[in-house]
Computed example of a mutant assay.
Amino acid sequence: MLGEFRRTAVLVPFDEFGSLWTSDFGGVRWICAFSDEEALARFAVARKEAGREWAYRTVLGARLLDVMVPMLPGPGGVALDAGSADGVVFPPVAGVVPDEVAVDLGGTGAGTR
């Protein structure tokens, strides 16, 4: 699953401040990504925000894990299709994110800002 995600372009919506949409859960900041527009639309409906425009960018999964997660201000990962029965998380652990931000290797997850 990880290899497929790394090779796949996913949709990452922007929040009201123009940043990538993230959610904090369990001490981890999760970048929310979606496999397609339908998955993003279901997320919008679940949030009761289907009436607004959802701007998004298409990003390779590898870029999210290798470049964007280390830029987060703490432990971070990617949540694919958040809120759906088929959702998957890619946590801040070795083999998923760069070693310097992998919390299981003693990384701080503090990012590289």
Rank of each mutant, 00 (worst) to 15 (best):
A85G: 12
V45S: 15
A39K: 08
S84F: 01
P70I: 02
D15R: 09
D81F: 06
P75I: 01
E38L: 14
L105W: 11
T22H: 01
A82M: 06
L60N: 11
V28H: 03
G106A: 05
A41Q: 10
D104T: 06
P92S: 03
E16G: 07
W54Y: 13
F25M: 05
A55I: 15
V89F: 10
G51Q: 12
F90H: 03
A44T: 05
D24H: 00
G87R: 02
G83K: 01
D99A: 14
A110G: 15
V12T: 08
E4D: 15
V103F: 12
V69T: 06
E100R: 07
G87S: 06
D81T: 03
V28Q: 02
T58A: 15
V59H: 10
F14G: 11
G3H: 12
G26T: 00
V69C: 11
D15E: 12
S84H: 03
A33N: 05
G107K: 09
E16I: 04
E4M: 10
A9R: 15
L11V: 03
G51M: 12
E53W: 14
L64G: 02
A82G: 03
R47T: 04
G83S: 06
T112F: 12
R7F: 08
R7K: 15
D99W: 04
L2K: 10
E100T: 01
V45D: 14
T58Q: 15
V67S: 11
D99I: 05
